[in-house]
Design a protein around this nucleic acid. Structure first.
Length: 424
RNA sequence: GGAAGGAUCGCAUAGUGGUCGAGUGCGCUCGCUUGGAAAGCGAGUAGGCUGUCACAGGCCUCCGGGGUUCGAAUCCCCGUCCUUCCGCCA
């Protein structure tokens, strides 16, 4: 969340930011509620001060009536204040992070600039299949039986796709660990309040989050949640920063309201594995850490010999907690583009600098030996979203007979003899 | 799932109705001391909100919420988490 004091003192900037980020928040009402809150609190503080003064010693019987009247007023004031704070908080949670100055301001989410391209889309001498056709050929995915067990947008994987996924996980973790990250596994559920404090909306019709009934837990949509909540309420020592973590977790998303002609297959599903990176750092280091996370993502995709490009989210496409976000988009030979021809870019990763927005909500600070202290900055980035990465691999490395050429870097992570579906 | 005990200022602890926002030890910071250090001595050492040009001042926080009381770290109720024992279990 943003600092109320900052909002109060920068009303125009905050309003403009909300506008460009398509966030419909009534800032005037928020500021007015804040003023009411402060006025009421001052009144209340004076009454409490009076009570404290009286209670320093045993009162005379005549005073007791005054004291009781004052206590009644305090109770009234507290009730009123609680109501105002409740409204204030729900508005405050809806205000997105202030945007990095380098980000393109646009109301159209198609306006994400392309920053760089790596590798060339492969020229295939045959008509490429999409991942679904390949999956059918090798019986990699079973949607029909998953539908019986869990409904649509779930899947079973089998055969060599399982080994490919496990190899990708180990490959990804090994690349990240090489950069000094602590690798972890985390719970796949988190308290709903944690999700909210990280800047996501866990409730309501449009939420992407599954809530657990009769409980304040939700299924996580990303390990960003559990890695971000990890240090909630802590004061980190400045010299131990940056703290760099990576975790493998299951991710669960309701995908409420998402329609797409690309809905078939495992590009957009309710449950998938993902390796996520998360960094806590000093404010002055966050831009540099952002570049580090991006560099690691590029290293991972380069190693897999997949053509990709880097895009920079414009304001319309930024998630609430982010000040700036880069995506890696991979080339998918089997994905139809807007003109219906085979081959298009598709989102593979996302890496965000959330500055102090999440740290303020979760109360995560640092204190350095040099006396410097304040809220940390947090960053998160996809290591590898397994379903999408597998699509990219099988589509880019497919051969005319439907077999897949395994990227050389994965060979050492496959502990079994591959069947004829893959070859090295 | 059942029973018992616990949660206090970075850490360890003291504290059963007003003298407690809170003592002590450790740690940390600054100063004295020293050739330098250790030891010793002295001082300081939570956060949030509000307020002020800046001070001052006020309010809140002893796990969270509610209650009793003129007054709660302290008494009562509910919840969360931790520990131990029993049961169960991959």
């Amino acid at each position: 969340m943003l600092d109320l004091k900052y909002i109060r003192e920068n009303i125009d900037e905050v309003k403009e930011n909300c506008h460009y980020r398509l966030a419909d928040v009534d800032i005037d009402r928020l500021v007015s509620l804040d003023e009411q809150r402060r006025n009421l609190q001052q009144e209340l503080d004076a009454q409490r001060s009076q009570r404290n003064a009286w209670s320093k010693q045993k009162p005379t019987p005549e005073q007791v009536a005054d004291i009781k009247a004052n206590n009644e007023a305090i109770k009234q004031g507290e009730d009123n204040l609680a109501k105002i704070i409740e409204q204030l908080d729900s508005l405050l949670l809806a205000v997105p992070n202030q945007t990095d100055a380098a980000v393109i301001r646009s109301l159209n989410e198609e306006d994400n600039p392309v920053l760089e391209e790596h590798g060339q889309p492969v020229e295939l001498a045959f008509t490429p299949k999409d991942h679904l056709a390949l999956a059918e050929q090798w019986q990699w995915l079973d949607f029909e039986r998953a539908a019986k067990v869990t409904g649509s947008k779930f899947y079973y994987t089998s055969n060599d796709l399982v080994w490919l996924e496990l190899a990708l996980i180990q490959y990804t973790l090994s690349v990240i660990a090489k950069h000094g990250f602590q690798v972890m596994t985390t719970p796949d559920l988190a308290k709903t309040s944690i999700i909210e404090r990280l800047g996501y909306n866990p409730r309501g019709e449009s939420t992407q989050i599954y809530n657990i009934a009769n409980n304040d837990l939700s299924l996580i949509g990303t390990a960003e949640i559990t890695l971000g909540g990890y240090h909630q309420g802590e004061i980190l020592k400045g010299e131990q920063l940056p703290l760099r973590y990576a975790a493998l977790s299951q991710c669960f998303r309701t995908e409420a309201g998402s329609y797409s002609k690309f809905a078939k297959g495992i590009f957009r599903v309710h449950q998938f594995n993902k390796v996520e990176m998360f960094v806590y750092c000093r404010p002055e280091d966050s831009a540099q850490e952002h570049q580090l996370l991006l560099a690691i993502e590029k290293e991972i995709f380069s190693g897999l010999e997949i053509p990709f490009r880097v895009i920079d989210h414009c304001t319309a496409d930024l998630g609430a907690p982010a000040a700036r976000t880069f995506d890696l988009e991979a080339w998918l030979p089997g994905k139809p583009n807007q003109d219906g021809q085979a081959g298009d870019w598709a989102e593979m990763t996302s890496v965000s600098n959330c500055t102090d927005y999440q740290a303020r909500g979760l109360d995560i600070k640092y204190q350095a030996a040099d006396g410097q202290k304040g809220l940390v900055h947090t960053l998160n980035g996809t290591g590898l979203a397994l379903t999408r990465a597998m699509i990219a691999i099988v589509e880019n490395h497919q051969q005319a007979d439907g077999r897949i050429k395994l990227p050389a870097i994965l060979k050492s992570f496959i502990p079994v003899d591959l069947s004829s579906m893959f070859f090295a």
